[in-house]
Simulated assay, not measured.
Amino acid sequence: MRGGASIYAPFGELIPNLTQLALKTNNFSSTNALGGITQTIGTGWTIAALISYNCAIPQTQLPYKTGYNNNVAKYYLHSAVCLGDVLDSLGYRQIMFQGTSADFAATRGFFTSHKIEMRDDKYFQSHKILQGNFQGMWGIKDSVIFGFVKDYLQTYTDSKPFVLYISTMDTHHPDGFVDTQYCQGFEKTFENAVRCSDKIISDFVMWVQNSKFKDNTSIIILGDHKSMKQNFFPANTKRSIYNAFIGTHFPQEKLKNRLISHFDVTLLFLESLGISIESFGLGRNPLRSQTLLESLGEQNLAQELKIPSKIYESFWNLNPKKL
């Protein structure tokens, strides 16, 4: 790690390209150095993080009367208004690309309930477009998924604006996956899984920045949650979640010495598209005001998030208008 345990992991030498991208563009941090997003209650695993980024609410509890069942999985947070619903109302085409099955953790139900088309491993298998060495540890490897995204962009002729969500999996615990075809000479270690992912993602960003979309495209790179890799980070390492907002024009004086959560990112998504509002769900626009983390403090916010909420339970009801 650059500078040892005092630097916010996983920034540093493991992701040199992404570190430079964050430094050169917009990166929110709780110090004057490179930093990241603070993980709080209901955001610390993948589907919870995706919900929090998109809806500005945590995934803390399911409806106490129904629990988790097939209907809940199919219509996940169906009545919540989330980023996908807003962008759909504004005419955006939206697609989620991922190399694993979207049936896991109700990912398909969540995204399709909020107007986002899902292209997962089942989609690519059914369309018979998988060729060569495409298999990673958890499904289709990241370099292949980014290849599909490039193919989509190169053939996109629709006049509608679009948002593409891309989920990467090569650094997933327990040991990650090293794409030795893309990162030749890399030994199969967790460190190299992170380094290879750094190369794959930054290469894609560079490709977009040299494409026909370069002048009117924003790129947002986020970690979903803190790494779950066991016994990898020193005990005294203060960790936060990577973020970089590329192609946006955020005031630099608003970025440092800040405490932002997943919920606040929802507003930054909208801000990057030129939509500036003060609040959305539990999110507060850090470019315009204090966040809840800043006004309440981390412990107080965590306690508030544990309190049952009738409003939160209502988000799991079916929305007849969507049906």
Rank of each mutant, 00 (worst) to 15 (best):
I140H: 05
T171C: 09
D120N: 07
K160C: 01
L90W: 01
W138Y: 14
T100N: 07
Y165L: 13
L83V: 07
D151Q: 15
Y156C: 05
H173N: 13
T171E: 08
F148C: 02
E117Y: 02
T180V: 12
A105L: 08
S126Y: 11
H114L: 11
L87P: 01
I129S: 14
M169G: 02
K115D: 13
D142M: 12
I166A: 04
V81M: 05
T100K: 04
K122W: 00
P161V: 00
Y165I: 12
F111I: 13
F97L: 09
D170K: 04
V86H: 01
F111R: 11
M118D: 10
I166Y: 04
L153N: 04
F134L: 04
D142R: 13
I145E: 07
D151R: 14
I95T: 15
C82N: 07
F148E: 12
Q125S: 13
H127S: 12
H172A: 14
Y165P: 01
F111Q: 11
G132M: 08
G147M: 02
F124N: 09
L153T: 12
F110E: 10
S79Y: 04
D158A: 15
V144D: 05
V144T: 14
Q98P: 01
D120K: 04
I95V: 15
V163N: 07
S126I: 08
D103C: 03
P174Y: 05
Y75R: 14
Q94Y: 04
F146N: 05
V149K: 06
L77V: 10
V81P: 03
L153Q: 05
D88P: 00
K141R: 15
S89Q: 10
S167E: 15
I140N: 09
A102C: 09
D120S: 10
S101C: 02
Y156W: 11
Q125D: 08
T155I: 03
T112R: 11
T112F: 00
F146W: 07
I116N: 00
G176L: 12
M118S: 10
G99F: 09
D121E: 13
F177G: 11
A102L: 07
Y123I: 13
I145D: 07
D85T: 10
Y156D: 11
L164Q: 04
R108F: 03
F111E: 08
M118F: 02
G109T: 10
M169K: 08
G132Y: 02
I95G: 05
W138C: 05
